[in-house]
């Protein structure tokens, strides 16, 4: 595997191989010295055209734990402000000698273009409304640690702004690869107009599915992407789709709660639910570093692509 651009490119065996490796890296992170020399001499650069805290920090932590050198490129303080194109920016960075580029961009498909332009490995850290594959892998890894190696038969509700969410798409694909059955739960305006071929069911009423699900995966309503009047008011949305303590109490006692962050505590997901015993939210963040270590190792370390 040279690049990680989309969960769509991975079959079940490839997903499982990455998650198996993530286990090894989670062990490394638990040590007194949570660092191994595996990627010594390699350089990983993060190129973020959209703001991000956890994804960028998570990748940089992962690279440092593997002893790689890291460079960070913040668009706000760069020549992009002076009008430099994506192509020129990417070519300039490549000329400094890098092994992997972690790309986040507001345009869907931007990482695919970058992968065609440069020799280094490209990792999609979120492109527009398209995909966010490492988030999906860390979600699957987190859930797998609690559900056993397979997710066969596991029922997952992904609740929220499906239409604007790259996480919904990637995570749905990844969970499905491992055998889970995914339901999108949102008002009709926040469901993509066409779901042709997507292996999902759709529900418009959260209260209908609450009692049947094994996982409640809550998404943030992306006000910055809403643009058009898709919702009358956020308040009305939260009244019907917010994961309140009262709704959580109607779930099965062993239903897990997940959220990719950043969260809007309160209306979107109640504090006592986020911090409750069935919440995997904090674990998702820790596991994110291990999963990104596995991705970096697979792409530029293990030599799996050398043979």
């Amino acid at each position: 595997m040279k690049h990680l651009l989309s969960i769509e490119d991975l079959d079940r065996a490839a997903v499982e191989a990455l998650l198996d490796q993530s286990d090894a890296f989670l062990d490394v992170l638990a040590r007194d010295i949570p660092k191994v020399p595996a990627l010594r001499g390699k350089t990983v650069v993060s190129l973020f055209y959209e703001e991000s805290t956890r994804t960028r920090l998570s990748f940089e932590t992962a690279a440092k734990r593997l002893s790689a050198d890291t460079m960070s490129f913040a668009v706000g303080s760069s020549s992009v402000k002076k009008g430099e194109s994506l192509l020129d920016t990417v070519k300039t960075i490549e000329a400094m000698g890098i092994d992997a580029m972690v790309v986040r961009h507001h345009a869907a498909g931007a990482p695919h273009r970058v992968a065609q332009w440069i020799d280094a490995s490209v990792i999609n850290a979120g492109d527009g409304r398209h995909e966010h594959p490492t988030q999906a892998l860390l979600d699957a890894f987190t859930l797998r640690r609690h559900r056993g190696p397979s997710l066969d038969g596991c029922r997952v509700a992904i609740i929220g702004d499906i239409r604007n969410s790259r996480v919904a798409r990637s995570t749905m694909l990844c969970f499905t690869r491992l055998g889970a059955r995914v339901t999108f739960v949102a008002p009709p305006t926040l469901i993509p107009e066409r779901l042709d071929g997507w292996p999902v069911t759709v529900a418009h009423d959260l209260d209908d599915v609450l009692g049947e699900i094994d996982v409640a995966y809550v998404l943030r309503v992306q006000e910055e992407r809403l643009g058009q009047a898709l919702l009358p008011t956020l308040r009305e949305y939260y009244a019907r789709y917010g994961l309140t303590a009262e709704r959580a109490a109607r779930m099965k006692p062993d239903t897990f709660v997940m959220h990719p962050g950043p969260m809007i505590r309160g209306p979107e997901i109640a504090t006592e639910v986020v911090d409750g015993p069935r919440s995997l939210v904090r674990e998702q963040v820790t596991n994110g570093v291990a999963v990104r270590m596995a991705v970096l190792w697979s792409l530029i370390g293990s030599g799996g692509h050398v043979a």
Binding site: Q21, D23, A24, D27, V28, V36, P37, A38, L39, L66, W297, I300, G301, S302, G303, G304, V306, A307
Partner: peptide, 21 residues
Amino acid sequence: LDVAFYRDDIGLRNVQPLGPT
């Protein structure tokens, strides 16, 4: 002990972790 991440032939051949440390 798994030594995969400490090997000096990383990138020259397919190196995979073999078990937990």
